[in-house]
C-alpha cells in the first residue's frame, strides 16, 4: 500500500552513475542528444552505442526496468522504421511488391533513425532511473540560476516542483480513497456507456480538488509559520558538488565526442 508507490522511476543504487552530480548527468545527456544526430556511419554509431550501453552497464539498473521504460516507445521506433522503408527512394531496389518498391537506402535510414531513437530514450531514462526527482530539481534550480538576473523566479519554480513531487504519493492515496468511497455509494467507474463513465468522474474530481485546495492552504500556512518568505536570504541544505569522478566522466565524454567527430563521414 503505502510503500508501494514509486515516484518517477528512480531505482536506488550506489553505482558511479547514481553518484554523479545531477548537473553532470543533465549536461552530458543534453550534449549526447545533440551529437546523436552527427553520427552517420558504422564507427560513429558504434561509439555512441558503446557509450550508452557502458553507462547502462555501470549503473547496474536491472534490464527489465529499462525495458519497461522503453515499452511505450517501441511502437514509435517501429513506426518510423516502416515509414522510412516507404518514403526513402535511394540506393538499389531490394524488394519489389505490387506497387511498392523498397530501397536499400530506406532500410539503412530506417535502422539509423531507429537506433537514434533508441539511444535517446535509453540515455534519458537512465537519468530518471539513477537520479531522484529532488536531485533533478536541485540541478535545474542551480543550472537556471543565471536567469535570476532577468527576474525569472528560479527558486519558486524549483520549490513548486519539489512540493509537487512530494505530494504526488499523497494525492494518489487520496484519489484511491475517494474512488473507493464513491464506489461504495454506487458509482460505477468501470462499466457502462462512456457518457456515464465520464459523469462518474465528477464525484471523484470535486472532492479531490477540494482536498487539494485545503492541503495547499494548510501547507502555505505551515510554511509561513516556519518563516518562509520567498527565496531571498535563504540558505540551502542540499549542496551540489562536482567531484573528481564528475571531471573524469566529462573527459570520457569529451573523448567520445572527439572520436565521433573524427570517424563520421564529412561532405
Amino acid at each position: 500500500m503505502n510503500n508501494s508507490l514509486i515516484i518517477g522511476q528512480y531505482v536506488p543504487g550506489t553505482s558511479i552513475v547514481h553518484r554523479l552530480d545531477p548537473r553532470t548527468k543533465i549536461t552530458i545527456i543534453f550534449f549526447y542528444v545533440f551529437i546523436v544526430f552527427f553520427a552517420n556511419n558504422l564507427p560513429s554509431y558504434g561509439i555512441l552505442i558503446l557509450f550508452a550501453l557502458a553507462s547502462t552497464f555501470i549503473s547496474r539498473v536491472p534490464i527489465r526496468f529499462i525495458m519497461k521504460g522503453l515499452t511505450p516507445v517501441w511502437f514509435l521506433i517501429i513506426f518510423t522504421f516502416i515509414l522510412h522503408l516507404f518514403v526513402t527512394k535511394e540506393g538499389t531496389v531490394i524488394f519489389d511488391f505490387w506497387i511498392f518498391k523498397f530501397y536499400s537506402g530506406g532500410v539503412i535510414q530506417g535502422i539509423a533513425i531507429s537506433i537514434r531513437f533508441f539511444l535517446l530514450i535509453l540515455v534519458t531514462s537512465l537519468l530518471t532511473l539513477t537520479t531522484t526527482p529532488i536531485e533533478i530539481t536541485d540541478a535545474i534550480e542551480d543550472m537556471l540560476r543565471p536567469l535570476n538576473k532577468v527576474k525569472f523566479p528560479v527558486h519558486e519554480l524549483a520549490l513548486m516542483m519539489s512540493i509537487s513531487l512530494r505530494f504526488i504519493p499523497t494525492l494518489m492515496q487520496e484519489t484511491d480513497k475517494i474512488s473507493r468511497a464513491q464506489a461504495s455509494r454506487g458509482v460505477d467507474f468501470r462499466t457502462g456507456p462512456v457518457k456515464e463513465r465520464i459523469k462518474a468522474i465528477v464525484p471523484l474530481l470535486v472532492p479531490l480538488f477540494v482536498s487539494a485546495f485545503k492541503r495547499a492552504e494548510e501547507l502555505a500556512m505551515a510554511m509561513e509559520a516556519r518563516g518562509y518568505q520567498g527565496g531571498h536570504g535563504r540558505s540551502k541544505l542540499r549542496e551540489l558538488k562536482i567531484e573528481k569522478i564528475d571531471i573524469l566522466v566529462y573527459f570520457v565524454f569529451l573523448a567520445v565526442i572527439t572520436v565521433l567527430l573524427l570517424t563520421r563521414t564529412y561532405g
Binding site: 526527482p133 529532488i134 492541503r215 501547507l219 540558505s235
Partner: peptide, 28 residues
C-alpha cells in the same frame, strides 16, 4: 499543526527539518 501530511514540506525527513533553517539563512 493538526494534519501531519499538510505541513511536511521537504522531500525527505532531513529536508523538512532543514526547511525552517533554510528560511532563516542558517549555515549548512
Amino acid at each position: 499543526f493538526q494534519n501531519p501530511d499538510n505541513q511536511f514540506v521537504g522531500a525527505t525527513v532531513q529536508d523538512d527539518v532543514a526547511f525552517g533553517m533554510e528560511n532563516r539563512g542558517i549555515s549548512r
